[in-house]
């Protein structure tokens, strides 16, 4: 995935079954952000892989004061990349059926 300067990782083991999963996001490289960034730490949240949209979560983070509005796209993309990877891994580990 592209280096956005924003890191998103699983905050729990993925059992491959539940749709809602805990993710953790933090800024690795503040220079990649457009807006002024106040280092607040790692942000943990739950994300529903089936129902939710990464960009909506990014918007909620902006509204909660974690990021400047100009960085909503980069945060959304960072979450989307990680979510895509989780889904891709899940697809590859689906048990074979008759």
């Amino acid at each position: 995935a592209e280096d956005t300067g924003v890191r998103v990782e699983l905050a729990e083991d993925d059992d491959g079954k539940k749709s809602s999963i805990a993710l953790k996001l933090w800024v690795e490289d503040p220079k990649k952000l457009k807006g002024k960034y106040k280092d607040s730490g790692a942000i943990e949240f739950t994300f529903d892989l089936e129902k939710e949209v990464p960009e909506v979560v990014a918007q909620e983070m902006v509204e909660s004061g974690f990021f400047h509005e100009s960085d909503v796209k980069i945060v959304g993309k960072s979450i989307r990349d990680r979510v895509s990877l989780i889904k891709w891994k899940r697809e590859r580990t689906v048990p074979a059926r008759d």
């Binding site: 690795e28 730490g41 790692a42 942000i43 739950t46 509204e63 974690f66």
Partner: peptide, 27 residues
């Protein structure tokens, strides 16, 4: 370590905790 919670008006809960130094990229 200290953690804080921020609840967005849409109901999502954000739990904020310090990033372990080992997880930060060396500049």
């Amino acid at each position: 370590s200290s953690t804080t919670q921020v609840v967005h008006s849409a109901g999502r809960r954000f739990i904020v905790s310090p990033v372990p130094e080992s997880r930060l990229r060396e500049q």
